[in-house]
Amino acid sequence: MRFPHERRQEILRLLEAQGRVSVGDLSRRLLVSEVTIRKDLAWLAAHGLLIRTHGGAVLADRNPAELAFEFRERLNREEKTRIGRAAATLVQDGDSIALDASTTAMYLARFLRDRRELTVVTNGMRVAMELAGRPGITVLMPGGTVRWEAFSLVGAWGEAILRQVNIQKAFVGAKGLTLEEGLTDVNPEEVRMKRALVEAAKEVIAILDHTKWGRVAFATFCPLERVRLVITDDQAPPDLVEAVRRRGVEVWRV
């Protein structure tokens, strides 16, 4: 039997994938009573994460993947930790890197705290907080407008700054990865900022868990041929992983 927070995370996953859910279907999927499901939906609605409907719920946001950051960071926590740990092995003392505002980038940042002479460019406020004040690490944040959904800074001000810096590696998350569309995301402003990070970097490394494979979001911010490496977890679909490798992109399953 799942704990309440595990059920609610699964409900959010299903909402992210489907856009709406019903009490009956959730009861059957999660093997709990409809009364329990209604309590979970009421709790999630009280926290602004969904809107109750007759017999179910829909997302509270018109962008289906824009769950509140503090809940998204808990989704697939173990997988993101493994991905972050593996990605950190690619960062050496003295590097200049970029991290986007994704939750997986935040997990990566936690494994960089002991680096020396490291420069990190990020538009992620939570990423910056993980590294701020660490000896030997300089954090640079481009200016812009705050997006509370992602705790990120977006806008043309930040893009102008990124055109003036040299970044060796950009580590970016995504809402989706496919062969045709490459890396995609849901918010237009976030897409523009991610594009700027990618354009400023010599190498692009995608950090994303298995739920993002085969999905397409609003717009492409990085074509597949621009990606050098994808770091994902061991539940990533093998057929799509092999197809990406055949395109010349290295894939780590951790």
Rank of each mutant, 00 (worst) to 15 (best):
L12K: 01
R13C: 08
G19K: 04
R20V: 13
S22W: 10
V23P: 12
V23I: 12
D25W: 13
D25I: 10
S27F: 11
R29Y: 11
R29N: 11
V32T: 11
E34C: 08
E34T: 08
V35I: 13
I37S: 08
A45W: 02
A46N: 12
H47F: 06
L50D: 09
L50T: 09
R52G: 09
A57Y: 06
D61R: 15
D61E: 15
F69Q: 13
R82T: 07
G84K: 01
A86T: 00
A88R: 03
A88F: 00
T89K: 06
G94P: 07
G94R: 03
A101H: 12
S102Q: 13
A105W: 05
F111C: 11
F111G: 07
R115E: 12
R126T: 15
A128D: 10
A128Y: 02
L140V: 15
T145M: 13
V146K: 10
E149R: 15
S152C: 10
V154N: 05
W157F: 13
G158Q: 07
Q164Y: 12
F171Q: 04
V172C: 08
T178F: 05
L179Y: 02
E180A: 03
E180G: 03
G182N: 07
G182C: 08
T184A: 02
V186F: 14
M193Y: 06
M193C: 03
K194P: 00
E199Y: 10
A200Y: 00
F218Q: 14
L224D: 02
I231G: 01
I231L: 03
T232C: 03
D233E: 05
Q235L: 11
Q235T: 11
P238I: 02
D239C: 04
D239A: 09
V241D: 05
A243V: 03
A243P: 05
A243M: 02
V244T: 00
R245V: 04
R247L: 04
V251P: 08
V254W: 05
